[in-house]
Amino acid sequence: MSNANATANAGLSTPIVRFAPSPNGLLHVGHARSALLNWQFAHANGGKFLLRLEDIDLTRARPEFETAIFEDLAWLGLEWPRPVRRQSRHFSDYETALSELRKLDLIYPAFLSRTEAAERVRKAEAGGRNWPRDPDGAPHYPGDDRTLTVAQRTKRISDGEPHAWRLDMKATLTGLAGSMCWDELGAGPNGETGKITATPAEWGDVILARRDIPTSYHLAVTIDDSIQGVTDVIRGEDLFAATSVHRLLQQLLGLPVPRYRHHGLVLDTGGRKLSKSEDATSIASWREQGATPADIIAMARLDSEA
């Protein structure tokens, strides 16, 4: 593999990177690209490559997919320290962070179900309102629950009413002075690189703990990167915008800020991002057809990130 991505890490004796798939499907060539770029960077800089399993969605995570992840990565020639960090075994870490945000009065219980929230948005848009949407295209959560009194929230929670926990974005940003930035050593979808100013307001009141799980992707990944000492986050450009949320959480919780390198995606013949639901694109499928690790590395187009 090329060392084109090698970068000096001034002041850092051991750069640490991570590849963090969810065991809810088979890895495809796009995953291989991200894993290999992380591995390549770690070895070019005398660093450490970690594997982490983002398995907070207990309804979709499967042991057979976890086994397949290990087999595919080992077949590609990658090695990592064991045991790996499994998010499902560290809910207490996320609950601690959530408690800190609760003490700061920056989160609130959100009682609307997805169906109820979607209906509020539908009615508003039908009435001519231009409802705000996040960078992924999802509508912002309605603000109904933000206006509930402490007594109302407490009663509904004590009555056992299902709820998630969301960040009060407006209140949070009102209390912060100055702008937040991160160092982007790769490039965003539109070529953004260098010092990037975070724009978390675009996401609205992001969910930090789901109804059935005491965390969310945004919270868990931010806490995990801090606990594991990750110095460089190397991941697909589809997560570039989400970095604004992670940067905000780092600011609120007093966590270190890693450098970020967002890379281009491997697309299918129709120009779409590869999906785990399409088994024909999986590494396992290519292996069954006789592909070699070198074939997968070629498909991953690592040199295009030089």
Rank of each mutant, 00 (worst) to 15 (best):
V206M: 12
V206I: 09
T149Y: 07
G11L: 00
T193A: 10
N24T: 14
A42Y: 04
A117R: 09
T154V: 13
T269V: 15
A8Q: 13
L253E: 04
G186W: 03
N38Y: 01
V230K: 15
L73A: 04
S113Q: 03
G271S: 01
V121H: 06
H31Y: 04
C181T: 15
I196K: 09
G188Q: 05
Q87G: 04
W131M: 00
H31T: 00
L267C: 12
A198S: 14
I157C: 10
I56Q: 01
K195C: 11
A306R: 13
I207Y: 05
G236W: 00
M1G: 09
R247E: 05
E305W: 01
F70P: 07
G186C: 03
D225A: 15
A35K: 01
A138T: 12
R301A: 12
P23Y: 03
G290H: 02
E278P: 08
T172F: 06
F49S: 08
K195Q: 12
T67C: 05
T172P: 12
L76T: 02
C181Y: 13
G290C: 08
D279W: 14
R153M: 09
T222N: 09
L50M: 09
A300D: 00
A97C: 10
R211H: 10
R60T: 03
R301F: 02
L26M: 13
T172W: 06
Q289H: 11
E116F: 10
R235E: 05
P214W: 07
T243Q: 10
L248W: 06
W80M: 09
G160S: 02
T7S: 06
G137C: 11
P162C: 14
V206W: 09
I69G: 11
L73I: 00
P109A: 08
D134G: 11
F19W: 01
L36D: 05
A110H: 15
N45K: 10
P189M: 00
E64P: 05
R153F: 12
T154D: 14
D55I: 01
G188Y: 02
V266W: 06
G188T: 05
D238C: 03
S226L: 13
R52D: 08
I207F: 11
F240R: 04
E125W: 07
D224M: 04
G236P: 01
S2D: 11
H43L: 11
V257T: 15
A126D: 07
H163C: 07
G30P: 02
S285L: 02
L101V: 05
L249Q: 00
Y217C: 00
I296Y: 05
A306W: 13
L176R: 10
K273N: 07
L267E: 03
S99F: 10
N5D: 10
K123S: 14
T231K: 12
I157K: 13
S99Y: 08
Q40I: 11
C181V: 12
R272H: 12
L51C: 02
A124I: 03
F111T: 00
G264Q: 13
Q40G: 11
H246G: 01
F65Y: 15
G77D: 09
V233N: 08
T149P: 07
L112Y: 04
A124C: 04
T115N: 14
P142I: 08
M299R: 15
G178K: 04
S22V: 02
